[in-house]
Amino acid sequence: MASSRPDLLQGTLDLLILKAVALEELHGMGISRRIGQITNGTFEVKAGSLFPALHRMEEAGWLSSSWGQSETNRRAKFYCLTKPGRRQLEAETDQWKRISLAISSALQAT
């Protein structure tokens, strides 16, 4: 998938963000880099799509944020998963598995 593609599949970005902050709390840049890392560089999330997504998910109650210190000693806003966020991650993961399974089998069928 081309990384220059401006908008990820809707929902995909949410899932990736939830996944990225599932282990530890991260700041915006950290989330962007983590997504690049866990998708082996396939997805590169730009600030233009990341910020609205983060704030939307915070409004939805999946993420909570707090100010903290970055690894380079800069003040940064950190996001972590809330309880509803964790439930959302699970739900979306299940969903995604079902769909990708369905799609793979559809594509393998001749």
Partner: peptide
């Protein structure tokens, strides 16, 4: 295809209800 996906995800998003008071 995209629309199908997005519908799936939106519906699942709706499953997780966030308290009205919070909103």
């Amino acid at each position: 295809m995209e629309t199908d996906f997005s519908r799936h995800f939106k519906r699942s998003a709706g499953d997780v209800r966030v308290a009205v008071t919070y909103r």
